[in-house]
Every structure is written in structure tokens, then in C-alpha cells.
Design a protein around this nucleic acid. Structure first.
Lengths: 342, 342
DNA sequence: ATGAAAGCGCTAACAG
DNA sequence: CTGTTAGCGCTTTCAT
């Protein structure tokens, strides 16, 4: 690889002049500029960003830490992040921790060694995780998840509202007996959705039936298994299952259908997050949309403000609103009013 | 950030000694080792990988260039790549070109400036693209797509076989009138699948009906539109649509159902690639599985061999086999034998 | 066994 | 306007 020294030799100018024409950092006479550019072309020269980074103390690189890129929730977010990183001349490192906390620590370490300019973390729900992040000394913003009392840079959606919205919609369709399939409550979004479900029920004057709440995680397998469990153990069946995520809803619908139970005729199902396939699922899923691409985009934009440090030192939290998406897995059942209500 | 110099000062040893204990690159007496390690702990020191990279001429970083991370074909591949990169102590940069050829050029440029140790390219189908890659001088391996006569490092699957397998399966179910919805023939995989369809038809003694082949791309929109077109224009309807990708099949099924045509009863549909949602699509899709995770994994493994240069200079091509996945979108129709055949 | 010093490729004073 | 030079933080001879 050619270096600036090579260029300066070929163009017969000083190395500082080469730097100046490349970075437009100082005025250089047309003649010299020309000679330098010719040499650059001749040698197919490209500046070495590693050397520049060392000097500048900035790598023009941001990293995203994500739990599982195979989860359909993330690709849109990642795209949003990469798009704005690219638009700002930054490179984008992807760290897929695959639900391995050891790997998370390791990635943090690598990112400080590699001198990433900033981090977007889509996996921190607990204070211990946050402490690890703080310890790196890197700039960062939290995406989607966050520890309970966290009040610094964050972008996410109003998860509490997602389930409140869901319950409200279900109530408006005439459903009264609503089961809830929760996510892993270690995860902040799962906690918030669960709280939203409860407050939503309360707002609608409905009672949450403990026998109809099932704990699990965001996977379709969890939805599947909890449905099987419900079918086997519950004394009374709900009119509708409100799932913590679309994947959970998928699993639930699958299990229901295997048992010959029709959706939504016998039991309806409501999702949460509007995964790209919900629209075309076996039964198109009524759910709540999360602006995933936007979230990723805003997270990196916020990170850049943080990096530039130009922004007021006040930390910013951006909480986007969810929106209801009505499809076919839940249907008007006004005609059954009063039938199943105690 | 603390540097080696700081450590050497605190530990009262030379900077070379610090380097030696950190890299275990030379014997250092227990006493000094101890002092150095204490200083490291005390200052929470982490080596600066940028400086090291400059000296070592290796960044321990690989990059993947991908057309569209939102396409469900890629997340599994990306995961495979990241997993082996991580396992080998490399960082992983993701470059999502979003079908923008200008962005592709730009990413290549950035990667040479950033001194990536290697590239995995999941988007090159044409010689002109390959030429751009070659010009970077970086080590690379092609993934999934490749230019016609390319014979160097590559990992992909036997695309021709995917459609031959499909046709064979369809023929065995009694289908004789088969429509083909092709991908963008600029893309190598689309070309190969299309060739496989033709040879498959030939092998089964079937004739490809030009009026029933539609050109498009790998998106569900393409499948949707071509189906509408077929429904509007084709003189005779096929018994089954063989789609170039699962997304295309999704679009086709959607259009068919909108027109009140039942799948598979009236017209069957066959996919290609086994996208994660095919199993639970409105009608579970019969398709051909591609080992995506494995492909990504092998690509980076091959890249590492290339980087180490230890491998024989013979370029290696790894072509994985596809496998049939029978679900519900195509069904035995022996009873109709001879009915629609000319 | 340990340290001094050169240099990776670049930027940015500072001189002239 | 252009060139000289001193580092950025690290690795690695080469002495001692």
C-alpha cells in the first residue's frame, strides 16, 4: 500500500502538503494540488484510516450490541442504524451477543480496545449491565430496553402504552376474559408491557385473572408451550390471548390450531410489535406496531449528538408512540356480550 | 485513557516490558510481571488496538457486504459470520448496501481505508462488481452470489439444484403445468434457479410454457404483481406456481387468495429458500431449504484461511446442497392426471 | 531479563 | 503557501 510519503516523493512536495490537499485543511496552490492528485491516482493511493485514527483519537466507527439478529425485531433497527452511520461517514460494527452475557462483556472490552466512538446498546435492562457499560467510559445510547430508573440517553417506544392500547382495543371488541402471555420480566420491555396490560385492564374495568397469565419469553416456542399448558390446565378458557410479542402470538396460534381451536372464532389472539410477517401469518395478526427502523435511526442520531458533545449536557430520552394495527386475529364479538362475563 | 507509558511509569519498568507482559511475547520476571499487572488493574488500562493495528498492519476486523439486512434471507447468514468472527477474536463490520451500487463502491473504499483484514461479499453477481472488489487488493470471499465464470473463493448453495428438486417434487405430485416466477436475472442465483427450472422440466419430460414464465425479482411485491398479471393475461392457468424465492411465493399466495383462488386446491405454490416464516405462512409453504447460517459460517472460515494464507493457494469453492421441505402449499394431485395435460 | 529507540502512517503546529 | 518536525500508542529489534 502506498503511503503519504510515497505520494510526497512522487509529487515532489512535502508530506504536509499531501495531507493538506487530501483533507482540504489548508490552501495549496493549484500546481501542487495537481501534482499531488496525479500521484494519488497513479499509485491508487488511499489514506490509511488506522493511522489517522491514532492521531485524531477518533475511529469514525460506532457499534451496535444486539441480543439476536435472527429475531425479526432487529433487522429493521439495524438497518436504521447503519443508514445513519453511513450517511455520517461512520462505519458500523455489529455485535450479536446471542443471549450470552459473557459475550456481552467481551464485546464491551473489544470496543474500548478498538476505540469505537460510540455504542448503541439494545440489550441492557439491568443495572449490573449498565454498570459494565459505564465502566467502559465510551459514549453510548440505550435502545429499546433500559434499567428501571435510567434517565440518560435512550430511545425506545412506550411499551406500557402498547398493552394498554391492546386491552382497550380488545375491550372495544367486546372481549372481557383476556389471558396474558408475558415475556421474560428480567427484560424491561417485558416488564412495561405487563404493567401496561394490568393498568389497561384496570382502565377498562376488567379483572386480570391470575389463572390466565402465563410467564415465558418473547419466542414463539414460549407462546406455543404456554398455550398447551393453558389448554391442559386452565379451568376456564379466555376469549382472547394477549401476547407480549408477535412471535409469542405465532406460537399460540399454532398451538391453538393444532388443538382444533379456531382463531379468532373460538379464541382470538393479539400480538405486540408488528413483526414483518404478521400481516401474512396463517391468520393475519392484529397487533401493535413499533417503529423499529425509526428507533434505530434515532438512536444513532442521538449517539452522534452525544459524540459531538455539542448538545446540551442534558440527557435526552426519546419515547416513540406505538400504533394499533387491526387485522384478522381479533374480531368484533359484541354479540357475545355478557355471555362469558361472570 | 491510560497508555503503556503510564503503566511503565507506575510500575517503574520500561515500556517494552509492559508490552511483553501484555502479549506474553517474552519472558518477564515474576516481580516485574506482578508490578505491571498491578498498574494495569490500578489504571483500568486497556491496550489501544488502533495503535497496535498500525504497527501490526492488521485490524482483526472483517466486513460483510450485504444487499438488504431486512430480507429474511440474511440475518441467519450474518449470525453465522459474526459467530465465527467472534470466535476467532475478530470484529465484524456490517455494510448494508440497500441495493445502492454507489453505496457499494463507497463501502469498498472505506474498507480499504479502514484496513479491514477481509471481506465477505454477498452481493456480487457481475464481473464489473468483482473488478471493483479486486481493485481494493483486500482478501475476500464471495457468498451466495457470484459472476458466471468465477472460480475463486466462494461459498453458496447449488441453486440450480434447488429448482430441479422443486420441479421433480412437483412432477411427483402429478403437476404438469408449472408456471415459473423468476428473480432478477442480473443476479447469479436467480439465473441459476431459472436454469435449474428449465433443466428440471426437461428432465421430467415437461415443457416450459413461455406464457407462464414471469420475470421479476425476489420480493413479495414482485410475486404479487406477477400473479395479478398472470391472472389477468394468461390464456390458461397453471396448476402450480414455482417461485424463485419464498418471498415471491408469499406475494403470489396473497394475490391468489385475494382473487378467491385456493392454495393449493386451485393453484399450488412452491417456494425457494425456506425463509423463517414459511412454516407458519397463511398456508405453510412447501419449499427448498438453504443452509443460511452454515453458509455465513463457512464463508468467514474460508476467509480466515485466505487471510492466514496458510492454505494452499488453490482457491476453494464450497457449494452446499439444498433440501426439500414439504409442507402444505403443494399437494398430491394424482387424481387429476391427464386432465390438464395437453 | 530488561530497556532504548526506531518507526507504523498520519496530522498539526510552527517556521520560513 | 510550503516544509520540518514532533508526536498519537504500540511492537520489536538490538544492546546491555
Amino acid at each position: 500500500m502506498a503511503t503519504m510519503k510515497d505520494i510526497s516523493r512522487i509529487a515532489d512536495v512535502s508530506i504536509a502538503t499531501v495531507s493538506a490537499v487530501i483533507n482540504h485543511s489548508a490552501f495549496v496552490s493549484p500546481e501542487l494540488t495537481e501534482r499531488v492528485n496525479n500521484a494519488i491516482r497513479e499509485l491508487n493511493y488511499r489514506p490509511n484510516a488506522v493511522a489517522r485514527s491514532l492521531k485524531m483519537k477518533s475511529t469514525k466507527t460506532v457499534a451496535a450490541i444486539v441480543t439476536d439478529i435472527e429475531n425479526p425485531y432487529y433487522p429493521a433497527m439495524v438497518k436504521g442504524m447503519d443508514d445513519v452511520a453511513f450517511a455520517n461517514g461512520f462505519s458500523f460494527m455489529l455485535c450479536n451477543i446471542a443471549n450470552d452475557s459473557e459475550r456481552f462483556r467481551k464485546y464491551l472490552e473489544v470496543m474500548v480496545e478498538k476505540q469505537a466512538d460510540g455504542l448503541v446498546l439494545a440489550n441492557v435492562s439491568r443495572d449490573e449491565e449498565l454498570a459494565l457499560v459505564e465502566r467502559t467510559g465510551l459514549k453510548y445510547v440505550l435502545l429499546n430496553r433500559k434499567p428501571p430508573a435510567y434517565d440518560k440517553n435512550y430511545v425506545g417506544i412506550n411499551n406500557t402504552l402498547t398493552t394498554e392500547l391492546s386491552v382497550k382495543h380488545l375491550a372495544s371488541l367486546g372481549y372481557r376474559s383476556i389471558a396474558y402471555f408475558a415475556g421474560n420480566l428480567q427484560i424491561s420491555t417485558a416488564r412495561e408491557r405487563w404493567e401496561g396490560f394490568q393498568s389497561g385492564m384496570h382502565q377498562q374495568g376488567l379483572k386480570v385473572d391470575e389463572a390466565l397469565v402465563f410467564h415465558g419469553n418473547y419466542t414463539s416456542q414460549s407462546g406455543y408451550e404456554n398455550t398447551k399448558k393453558m389448554l391442559a390446565e386452565a379451568r376456564r378458557m379466555p376469549e382472547v390471548i394477549c401476547a407480549a410479542s408477535d412471535l409469542v402470538a405465532f406460537g399460540a396460534i399454532k398451538a391453538l390450531r393444532e388443538s382444533g381451536i379456531r382463531v379468532p372464532e373460538d379464541i382470538a389472539v393479539m400480538g405486540n410489535d408488528n413483526n414483518p410477517f404478521s400481516e401474512n401469518f396463517i391468520v393475519p395478526l392484529t397487533t401493535v406496531d413499533h417503529p423499529k427502523y425509526e428507533m434505530g435511526k434515532l438512536a444513532v442520531e442521538l449517539l452522534f449528538k452525544e459524540i459531538e458533545g455539542t448538545e446540551q449536557k442534558l440527557a435526552r430520552q426519546i419515547v416513540l408512540p406505538p400504533s394499533l394495527v387491526v387485522r384478522e386475529s381479533c374480531r368484533w364479538r359484541g354479540e357475545l356480550y355478557g355471555l362469558n362475563s361472570s
